[in-house]
């Protein structure tokens, strides 16, 4: 995952390394405001922290190492330009109708991994909070300071899920407990984890990686090559959008 950009080798890990030299100039936005340690700029991340790990069957990627979500204090706020903003606790998430699908998470780093995901449709959440018609955009905030942005219409596409379970188990801390987004036609970085807030807006916000590297806000998976972890990382062509390999079942 390296590319020369104006003579600089640039990748996400290198960016994180580079940013450490800038740390004295001030914190990267947003992230430190909540008074938690910021290990983005530190190589000595405690083992107990959620952090990038190359687990063979499904790599872990997490922008800002942290201990994970304490469900007792976790809430989800859904608001912004909405008539009925609400705040939910974990148990409230199980009041939605659930759906399941098998889909790949395709990382912009090249690899992809497949899982069974279970969760609810964004439409049902919208129906509850009743966003203003002018609210064409949605911002997601994550517990680790990560943030993402989407068009509402993208979140209403058939294979998009607000995910509570992975491979027949509750989401693990590393995979985004208690709530994450799966949009299979977007690169992995668009699939926000540990979601704490969803905000409807009338203008498009940016996202963490667009602000911190050469990564598009849109994040639609482009035609090219994939290196699926369940195929020994051997290269396979992909046509763009949601990734299906010859050995995958299409819906």
């Amino acid at each position: 995952m390296k590319k020369s950009l104006d003579g600089i080798k640039f990748d996400r890990r290198r960016f994180l390394g580079m940013s450490s030299s800038l740390a004295v100039l001030g914190p990267l936005a947003p992230g430190r405001a909540w008074g938690k340690p910021d290990y983005r700029n530190d190589k000595n991340i405690p083992e107990s922290y959620i952090q990038n790990r190359d687990i063979p069957d499904f790599h872990i990627r997490s922008a800002n190492p942290f201990l994970g979500v304490d469900v007792a204090s976790w809430t989800l706020s859904v608001g912004g330009l909405a008539r009925k903003p609400l705040r939910m606790v974990y148990e409230d998430l199980f009041g939605f109708k659930t759906y399941s699908q098998v889909s790949r998470l395709k990382c912009v780093e090249c690899w992809s991994a497949k899982a069974k995901w279970e969760g609810f449709r964004f439409r049902e959440l919208m129906d509850r909070v009743q966003p203003d018609p002018s609210a064409k955009y949605v911002g997601f905030q994550s517990a680790d300071s990560y943030y993402e942005s989407y068009l509402v219409e993208e979140l209403l596409m058939p294979r998009v899920l607000m995910v509570l379970r992975m491979n027949d188990q509750p989401l693990s801390q590393e995979h985004g407990f208690p709530l994450r987004l799966i949009a299979p036609f977007k690169y992995g970085y668009k699939n926000a984890k540990y979601i704490t807030a969803i905000k409807f807006a009338d203008s498009r916000g940016r996202n963490y990686w667009a602000n911190n590297g050469p990564y598009s806000v849109d994040g639609t998976i482009q035609p090219g090559i994939d290196h699926p972890l369940d195929f020994g990382k051997k290269p396979l062509p992909i046509n763009g959008g949601e990734v299906f390999h010859p050995f995958d079942e299409r819906p």
């Binding site: 995952m1 390296k2 950009l5 912009v108 639609t220 482009q222 035609p223 090559i225 046509n239 763009g240």
Partner: peptide
């Protein structure tokens, strides 16, 4: 086509495929 941050022009004979309902 693109692989991570490498963007290449495909040859003019290259054939890509797509679900006709796709909207990208």
């Amino acid at each position: 086509t693109q692989t991570h941050l490498t963007v290449k022009f495909t040859p003019a004979y290259f054939r890509n495929w797509m679900d006709p309902e796709a909207r990208y």
